[in-house]
Design a protein around this nucleic acid. Structure first.
Length: 751
DNA sequence: GTAGGGTTAG
């Protein structure tokens, strides 16, 4: 065999020493035998430049690996080879080798068996794993510590927690390591409650805790506590850490920090962090991610800087966290810097960092950059796809969201509720923002609602059948139907909601309240609202706003008082609803007092929306001067929506008093004026007979290439969408024309 | 053979 006489306990492998073809590295040899080996080698190879040094354990493994290969080449199977195949995860070769060994009548020992069991920790290898388990039982190796823990880990990695537990229970003795393996088996499969129960049961029973509990145990249990709904178990494990004198352990400090920060106790986590004598990178990462998870993005960035000042090099995990922080801050410049840094450090294809980049760019509305980051990610996960789809959802790009979804299905991935939520949100016209005009446009062209709703259902219904629809994806669908005012489909969905048992989920119920209001079915909406067992502020806001929009202003204001009386604190959105209701009913004095109440009693400073409501209310009731004062008071920047609303209100009023010319001109000085501002102004001038001004406005519109988008409204009845434009006189189906006639005459009669 | 830190929505 290679002409080398191998002394007992010594093995050789070729090294890569410079200048020597035969640089051999002997291993597992004492320094006394070192000289003998050197002499032997020099004689054998005839190279006096050979370096010989005593190797450590790593070298010994490598030497055994080499020895195995040499033996293999000479036709004799070697048990060591099996070990190395297993260690390298070369499972196919390992099992081939195992059968060869058996033909030679050789048996793997405990160490090799445990390594073999280690490579069966994949669902597709479970059969081999169970075969090994049988062999282990036959050989009576089941109580061997290495083997026992490997089997527990193997079953847990194959998602067979029950098998792991059964094996664990059947063993004659408890040992600390396999007990730890069982705890982490539960954790691996998302069963943190079982992990905690197993721990506390045994700790309660065993008198000598130290025999069973080590630092590994505690850090696993702390991880389970981090995921628990209550902080209580975490606190008592912290007590145990102190009692068993493990406070010096940096890993446990990290586990404690994570446990506290996951429960929002960032101060406690920070205390542990600051008291830590020697911090490592994981500790920094834990603290930074704790802040990021609770949106303390600035604090996270401060720590990120401090860690670098203290000489720590951020890794891909650090970068993932700070990218999330930059997304939260919507700080595109910071995000781009971090992008460059991620690239420089070679983490650009990391699935987590890459996905964080996708998310950051989508949140900063840079969808092209998000797409690019997505393309570069290696091993795109479902989360990567979800981040991209959510990005498209933010942009309202339903088509691309759909393409990404199809792509995901092609990769044989299974969409989760989050995928559906993103996809379904992308159908929503609200997601279109300014582009909601595009949505109206699509409706006017007469293609779309059916197509879009068709897509919507074809995505949603399979998830209902497979029971993967949850409250979030369902509320996303409700939101879309609300935006489309699709009444029939909405009612259908309501029955589905009841069948799925989701009617008490607060997001779903609130969505239903909103949907019925938007479809004009305010009674149905109120019924859902009343049936809600749990109402948060959003639910109240939706109902108050919805009542106002449907002309039920008194009821809306009553509800506001009820909300305050039972102790739910109104917020800025509540007051938009309240003021809108006052505006709708022309209740100018009430509006004024609610506007004042908002600041004086609830400490809410009015936003542009509140001002817009008030201005509109004042103008509609002819109090132009007051309205103009308020407009000038509210902000230095002219807001086009507010000015438009003001001037439109002036038109409604048709009073003798006219808005000042300055007000009109100010409208066009606002940033991002749109065609409707021009049209409004031209109408105002026309009513006053100021024809030169009208002509001037029309010509500047032509110069700017603006054309008037007629506003429209629609309602979906019996799967058919009916579109109306302002002042439309014809094109209605007969039954609608009759109803319209009726409504019209009633309105006349009512003045 | 057993530990701690990361990404997606509402």
């Amino acid at each position: 065999m290679w002409g080398v006489r191998v002394a007992s306990r010594a093995l050789f492998l070729p090294g890569n020493g410079a200048g020597s073809k035969f640089h051999w590295k002997p291993c597992i040899c004492s320094s006394a035998s070192k000289q003998i080996f050197r002499d032997e080698l020099v004689t054998l190879i005839g190279d006096p430049s050979i370096h010989v040094h005593a190797g450590g354990l790593g070298d010994s493994l490598a030497a055994r690996d080499m020895f195995g290969r040499m033996a293999d080449q000479h036709g004799a199977p070697c048990v060591s080879t099996l070990y190395f195949h297993a260690k390298r995860g070369e499972d196919a070769q390992a099992f081939m080798h195992l059968s060869r060994l058996r033909r030679w009548g050789l048996k793997p020992n405990e160490v090799i068996l445990s390594a073999l069991v280690g490579i069966c920790g994949r669902p597709n290898r479970i059969d081999h794993g169970m075969g090994l388990h049988c062999f282990i039982l036959k050989q009576g190796f089941q109580d061997h510590h290495f083997i026992a823990s490997s089997l527990v880990v193997m079953y847990s990695k194959c998602a067979r927690v029950d098998s792991a537990r059964r094996f664990f229970e059947e063993r004659a003795v408890y040992d600390c390591i396999s007990w730890n393996s069982m705890i982490s088996a539960y954790l691996r499969n998302g069963m943190s409650k079982e992990a905690i129960d197993l721990f506390s049961d045994a700790v309660g029973r065993v008198s000598d805790r130290l025999a069973l509990v080590n630092n590994f145990t505690l850090s696993s249990v702390l991880k389970a506590c981090a995921l628990s709904g209550s902080i209580r178990p975490g606190r008592s494990v912290h007590g145990l850490v102190v009692k068993l004198d493990f406070e010096w352990d940096v890993v446990l400090a990290g586990s404690l920090m994570t446990m506290y920060s996951k429960h929002g106790c960032l101060g406690r986590a920070r205390l542990i962090f600051e008291k830590l004598g020697e911090r490592d990178l994981v500790a920094w990462n834990a603290m930074i991610s704790g802040y990021v998870q609770f949106s303390h993005d600035e604090e996270a960035m401060k720590l990120f800087q401090r860690m670098q000042l203290e000489g720590f090099l951020p890794n891909e995990i650090t970068l993932t966290s700070v990218l999330k922080a930059s997304a939260g801050l919507e700080d595109i410049d910071l995000g781009k810097c971090l992008h460059a840094y991620v690239t420089k450090r070679g983490h650009i294809s990391d699935s987590f960092a890459g996905t964080a980049l996708v998310d950051m760019y989508s949140k900063c509305s840079e969808i092209k950059d998000a797409e690019h980051a997505f393309m570069v990610v290696r091993g795109r996960s479902l989360v990567s796809f979800n981040a991209l789809i959510s990005g498209y959802c933010l942009m309202g790009d339903h088509e691309r969201a759909m393409l990404a979804y199809i792509n995901l299905l092609k990769q044989a991935m299974r969409p989760d509720p989050l995928t559906l939520t993103g996809l379904l949100c992308s159908c929503s016209s609200k997601a279109l923002g300014e582009g909601s005009q595009a949505h109206c446009h699509a409706i006017k062209l007469g293609f779309d609602s059916d197509i879009s709703l068709g897509i919507l259902w074809s995505v949603f219904m399979p998830s209902v059948a497979s029971q993967t629809a949850d409250e979030f994806s369902t509320s996303a669908v409700i939101k879309v139907l609300a935006d489309w005012a699709a009444a029939e489909q909405g009612k259908h969905l309501h029955t589905l909601v009841i069948k799925m048992g989701l009617e008490s989920a607060v997001f779903v119920a609130t969505g239903l309240v909103d949907m019925y209001c938007k479809c004009g079915m305010v009674e149905d909406s109120f019924k859902v609202f009343v049936s809600m067992s749990l109402r948060n502020d959003v639910a109240w806001n939706v109902m108050i706003t919805g009542l106002g929009h449907n002309g039920r202003c008194t009821k809306s204001l009553e509800l506001f008082h009820e909300m305050v009386d039972i102790g739910v604190t109104p917020n800025a959105v509540t007051f938009i609803g309240v003021l809108a209701a006052c505006n709708h009913a022309g209740l100018v004095d009430e509006g004024r007092s609610y506007f004042d109440l908002m600041g004086s009693r609830f400490g809410i400073s009015p936003s542009i929306e509140h001002y817009t409501c008030m201005v509109s209310l004042l103008a509609r009731t002819g109090r132009f001067h007051e309205a103009e004062l308020l407009m000038n008071a509210c902000s230095s920047l002219p807001d086009p929506v507010m000015w438009r609303s003001f001037l439109a209100s002036c038109r409604v009023r048709r009073s003798e008093e006219r808005p000042s010319r300055a007000s009109k001109e100010r409208l066009l000085s606002a940033p991002d004026v749109c065609s409707s501002s021009y049209v409004l102004l031209s109408n105002l001038f026309a009513e006053e007979g100021l024809w030169p001004e009208v002509a001037e406005i029309r010509s500047s519109m032509r110069e700017l290439g603006m054309s008037k988008e007629p506003g429209c409204s629609w309602i979906a009845v019996r799967n058919e969408t009916h579109v109306f434009t302002a002042e439309q006189k014809s094109g209605f189906p007969d039954h609608m024309r009759a109803t319209l006639f009726l409504v019209h005459s009633e309105m006349r009669a009512g003045g």
